[in-house]
Amino acid sequence: MKLADITWCPGCSNFSILASVQNTIKELGIEKNLAITTGIGCHGKIFDYLPYSGVYCLHGRAIPTGIGIKIGNPNLKVICFTGDGDTYAEGIGHFIHACRYNIDMTLIVHNNQTFSLTTGQPTPTSEPTYKDKTMLIGSFGQPLNPIKLALSAGASFVARTYANDIKHTTEILKQAIKHKGFSFVEILQPCIIFHDTRKILSENIYKINTSKNLDEAMKKASEYNYNLKGKIPVGIFWQEEKQTLEEQWPQLKNLMDKNLMWKDL
């Protein structure tokens, strides 16, 4: 299969994410049983650069399509690649419910705090002072804190990394994919064209250890509110063992126990 020529801007942090993802999948050896879904945006282009099965979904819908794939064949590993416009704006409802369902799947959000592909409009995690062509007087409203949202919606694995730290991102992605249940990894990334946060992010990130309880995790998550000020915690905020949706559904459990597809029943 001939993959697409890469059309990200030279120097785009998506190259680093691509490298982390390739490392992770190779190291875990999950190529064969893998299906990916992607949203629409610069991040989504990763679909055409990876030689794996999957669906290049509609904007905002990579999560439900990914859940569908998992229900359609629970023996597949499913990874969803989305953007902050994609998941936090267009698809926010799906995000909350995915945390709640605890289906065994990994969600990666490439968060550059801007709609890059549509040339730089603000997203729900843009800092309040963000300005662009459509928001000449700034974008009002407080940024959403997706880490806190995921924690309160019941996600069983919640992490954040910095795109250009490939080693750390690979390490976290490996743990996320290995985690049994819904894992959410937000990758903070600069968009060197519309939201160049390289300096701020690289100077302010610091690594955390996984919290022992939810209160502590919430506190850690509250340390940074996406306003590009102060320290930015990265690492795994929270991880817990919970029954997955597939384990509780007799039909799906049966498919997993016997390693079958629906058509084989």
Partner: peptide, 29 residues
């Protein structure tokens, strides 16, 4: 020993996109 399941997601947008995902994975949806 049912060989059929029903899923009620959060809204119809999820319904249709999930059904496509499941069908892609080989389940008749």
């Amino acid at each position: 020993d049912s060989k059929f399941m029903m899923f009620q997601p959060e809204n119809e947008i999820a319904v249709a996109n999930m059904a496509l995902g499941a069908s892609f994975a080989g389940a008749r949806s």
